[in-house]
Design a binder for these strands. Structure first.
Lengths: 237, 237
DNA sequence: CGCCTCGTTGAAGGTGGTCAATTCGAGTGG
DNA sequence: CCACTCGAATTGACCACCTTCAACGAGGCG
């Protein structure tokens, strides 16, 4: 199942041209470009087809909190209402290609296609689950636990996307991203990573992550073996 | 729009008896009873009709993180898959009445009724939004900011539910709940509340919350005036 | 080369945690 | 009515994790 033109054609059938009068537009954005800004209205829903997107909240004191690293198959901007401001900023972390819908159109299509609507609900459910895990890590875990949580999650998702090319995985992030996602300072992230490297848990540098001891990392992250954390996103054909 | 029997009848029309062969069951649970447990499978979706429900994760070290205070109209347990364990525990915070569906049934109904599906998606979207705000507060804010965030949110939702009977609002929670939700210790929550009372920001005791200076509280919570935070839950008739 | 961002390290300070003792209030039973 | 109990609230002393501030090194790029 995929969030792409062929799926939409399949679902919509002969109604496709009525439902998508302008077809489905694909866009590309360069790394570092903002897709929309916190506090400003935005009337589209974005589906990531390739690349990584970052969402974060900015606070008055200039601090930012990274909410989510979004990968292909993930939905962005589904929660607005076209008039009030978005709750966060979204920014391309790498070069990305996106599939964009006017939100009203997207909702309309979902309302007339239960299959689309359930696809949508499933995507939002994944977001909620991920956010709850994030809340748990930020609320109850030490610096090392938070970093372990984040890197295990990113590793899992990156491997699911690209497959593992050996033990090393490429992540387009630096220590500052880790700091802003875990609620730590980059200084302390540096010290924590150094400690984790000393304990032969992982290596991280130059956008490369190697998990040396995934089992102990999972312990440190206090992952619950009973709970299946990972819900794969819909494939993007 | 309501998540109740009359809505379901309305949506399902003459298919109601086919879609809900057992009708829709209402249940009541006493305060303190667990609705389901972290790590154990659970095959139902619950809609709260009255009362408060608490969801939280428990970690190996015994700490717990409160994920969500759920009020009437909120959905619980929508994210499982019937076989793997739930990601958190849900517990009645007060006496509650619930509307319960088998998850497979609920999904089936949504899949055959776009209106139900969009209702569902909207409910999950509210959960995700709330979780993102929670992430922001836990990641970037001081103890006072976290407490202000939580209490402003609970105040808003409680008033929306019950209306304000004067400046005081009844919340069925104590300082330990605040601590577990904000990632602080109850000792420090006590100190923080004392400080906030000294600064004439609010009063909290015996399940009563009074906001003395909502504007300054909103500043402390670093709420973004551009962003409309609150999305009302669906009414429960 | 010069500039910039990111990473690294050290020293000092503060926010919040830990531990412990006391008080308070509600409930319970004598 | 009064002890007794138990959980929650409160307070103090001490401590640790993480922050802040500052400096410096490494690498990329004009």
């Amino acid at each position: 199942m995929a969030w792409d033109q062929s799926l939409c054609r399949q679902i919509a059938g002969s109604d496709f041209d009525r439902l998508f009068p302008n077809g489905i537009r694909y866009q590309t954005r360069e790394a570092g470009v903002a897709l929309f800004h916190q506090g400003q209205p935005f009337d589209q829903v974005l589906i990531i087809r390739s690349g990584w997107v970052l969402t974060y909240k900015v606070f008055q004191d200039g601090q930012r909190q990274i909410i989510r690293f979004a990968l292909p198959g993930d939905l962005i901007g589904f929660e607005g209402d076209d008039t009030s401001g978005m709750a966060y900023t979204a920014e391309a972390l790498s070069d990305v290609t996106l599939c964009s819908f006017k939100r009203s159109l997207f909702y309309g299509v979902c309302s007339s296609s239960p299959q689309m609507a359930m696809n949508f609900a499933a995507a939002v459910t994944r977001e909620a689950l991920a956010a709850w895990n994030h809340v748990g890590a930020l609320g109850q875990q030490s610096a090392m636990g938070r970093v372990a949580n984040l890197l295990l999650d990113l590793h899992r998702r990156a491997v699911a996307q690209c497959g593992a090319d050996g033990p090393a995985v490429r992540l387009p992030i630096n220590q500052i991203h880790i700091a802003d996602a875990t609620g730590l300072t980059s200084v302390h992230v540096c010290r924590t990573l150094k400690q984790m490297k000393l304990e032969r848990l992982l290596e991280f540098g130059k956008g490369q992550l190697v998990l040396l001891d995934p089992e102990r990392l999972a312990e440190i992250a206090q992952l619950d073996p009973e709970v299946e954390l990972y819900q794969p996103p819909l494939a993007v054909a």
